[in-house]
């Protein structure tokens, strides 16, 4: 018998349609980790809503969480769809699946503005540095000097998704690597519990168009150059935190999230404080200079108000189940309104 989680569901209850992405595509690995994260967090699939834009990344929601509602929208417009939709029932968790073309080209505006509003959403950028679905053109995150078959050499500096997120005052910024599934899963879990927009820039190699060993979005380069900021653990219930053995100061950091869950970060090479924006920006700049793939939770600010907090909405019933008598003003107000006209 298949293993069940705490709510009695098996992993099959979290699967989607069979993937039609290329074999070995990094996105498939991300899909698997999303499925595992939701399963392990014991969330009913109905409590998650999937959103995406256009591109290979945006096809991904079809291949996971078949029992979750999903909306595959327009190129670069996933954030606006998600913003409106999630107000329908604010108890649900939104997972937005985007790509480097989707978020850093046409979608740059919406990417930044959902961050600015801090709308709760797990915002994953499956970043492969290339347009896959249109067969291998440069994307905004392509390496400068990248050579592609029909395109020649890319003369432009790449957009750094995490730097853009930080510049927009994001409250959760992380980078990961599809070749590091454990870290991807931990970050997804933490992001699902973050009250605000959580940006996950996941380097996700495109095996068909941008996996040459010297490309910074390839498996080989990633495996050789990944440097983790910290060992990460997510604890859905902060009370469970048990630190193993003797710890030196700065050895372990703990970030408590809005709902009482916690992220535990264990030092690897250096002490890194993910609540220090300045440190995050410096870490990104250094990673660029040193040619490393620096992964982990770069920045978090758990307590900034999220967009729905600004509206003082009723919480006793989901907004999309609110009955007419609570939405239509009563008949006696009509005279008052007419009196307010001249």
């Amino acid at each position: 018998m298949a293993k069940t989680n705490a709510i009695g569901l098996t992993i099959a209850d979290y699967k989607g349609a069979p993937t039609t992405l290329c074999q070995g595509c990094g996105h498939n690995s991300i899909i698997s980790q999303i499925i595992s994260a939701v399963f392990e967090e014991n969330l009913p699939p109905e409590s998650v809503v999937k959103f995406s834009g256009i591109g290979c990344s945006s096809k991904a929601p079809t291949y996971m969480l078949g029992r979750s509602f999903g909306f595959n929208g327009l190129h670069g417009r996933m954030p606006s769809l998600a913003t409106g939709a999630l107000f329908g029932d604010l108890s649900l968790i939104g997972i937005g699946m985007s790509g480097d073309g989707d978020s850093a080209a046409i979608g740059m505006g919406q990417f930044k503005h959902i961050i600015r509003r801090n709308m709760p959403l797990v915002y994953i950028v499956a970043n492969n540095g290339v347009y896959g679905l249109t067969k291998g053109q440069f994307s905004p995150t392509s390496d400068r000097g990248l050579k592609l078959k029909k395109q020649g050499v890319n003369p432009f500096e790449p957009v750094d998704i995490c730097m853009e997120a930080l510049a927009s005052n994001a409250t959760f910024v992380a980078r990961s690597f599809a070749g590091d599934p454990k870290q991807v899963k931990t970050l997804i879990k933490a992001a699902m519990h973050h009250r605000g927009t959580a940006i996950l820039d996941i380097i996700s190699p495109c095996v068909s168009f941008n996996n040459q060993p010297n490309a910074t979005h390839s498996y080989e380069w990633g495996k050789k150059h990944e440097v983790i900021l910290h060992d990460m653990q997510f604890l859905p219930n902060a009370k469970e935190i048990m630190l193993e053995g003797e710890m030196e100061p700065g050895e372990v950091r703990e970030v408590t999230l809005h709902d009482g869950s916690a992220i535990v970060l264990k030092r690897v090479d250096r002490d890194y404080d993910p609540t220090d924006r300045f440190a995050a920006i410096r870490a990104l700049e250094e990673a660029k200079q040193k040619h490393i793939l620096l992964t982990g939770l770069l920045y978090i600010e758990p307590d900034r108000p999220a967009l729905p907090d600004l509206y003082d909405l009723p919480t006793d019933v989901p907004f999309n189940r609110m009955p007419q008598e609570r939405l239509r003003p009563s008949p006696d107000t009509m005279q008052t309104v007419n009196d307010l006209m001249f």
Binding site: G73, R77, S80, L81, T83, L86, G88, G109, Q110
Partner: peptide, 13 residues
Amino acid sequence: LAASGMAIGAGWA
């Protein structure tokens, strides 16, 4: 673009 997207998201929900 975003105004229509948000409204359509909400209508869908």
